[in-house]
Design a protein around this nucleic acid. Structure first.
Length: 166
DNA sequence: AGACTAACGTAATCAATGT
DNA sequence: ACATTGATTACGTTAGTCT
């Protein structure tokens, strides 16, 4: 446990006040719609996700996460039963259009990144408000930033697979 | 206590955009 | 061509909810 670690912003996140987004509970009809759509295409593009999100009254990013988790479940189950996973059927649906981040937005995000590489939902929402970018894009921005600019001193990767510090 | 699963993490990769 | 960087994927982890 230790981890009295200091004040620099490069804390492993769980050590500091990292709040997650509040977990949402899908209603039965929402789950039904999600599963139906998944059955038609487990790899929906942005247009499909947005249409579905609209139809069930849920934010598109939550729909996207649901598809990611559902694919994990299906892939695991198919593997467990030695059944082949029918990968992508049909043509690749279009991705979300690339978000252009202006230099001033980048500067703002950069400053936040230096303070905290693992911002919780409250911080991300704040940054979204300040930059005018969707929170989901902020989230991805931080993921990419962490991957491409590792913390100086080779800081341990938060949790996953981290060496147990005695 | 354990199952289930949304939220979230990394690593690798695809792909748009500018030079 | 190539560098940069946003978007998506597979897969593993964390944590909230329910039984």
């Amino acid at each position: 446990m230790a981890l009295p670690t200091p004040s620099d912003g490069t804390l492993p996140a769980e050590a500091r006040g990292r709040g997650r987004r509040r977990r949402l509970a899908w209603t039965p009809s929402q789950s039904q719609a999600l599963r139906a759509c998944f059955e038609r295409n487990p790899y929906p593009g942005i247009a499909t996700r947005e249409r579905l999100a609209q139809a069930i009254g849920a934010p598109e990013p939550r729909v996207q996460i649901w598809f990611q988790n559902e694919r994990s479940r299906q892939l695991r189950q198919h593997r467990r039963e030695s059944r082949p996973w029918p990968g992508r059927r049909g043509p690749q649906e279009g991705r979300r259009k690339r978000t252009s981040v202006t230099p001033s937005q980048t500067a703002l995000l950069l400053r936040a990144f230096e303070k905290d590489r693992f911002p919780g939902i409250a911080t991300r929402e704040g940054l979204a408000r300040e930059t005018g970018l969707p929170e989901s894009r902020i989230h991805v921005w931080f993921q990419n930033r962490r991957a491409r600019h590792p913390a100086p001193g080779g800081r341990a990767p938060a949790h996953a697979g981290g060496p147990c510090n005695s």
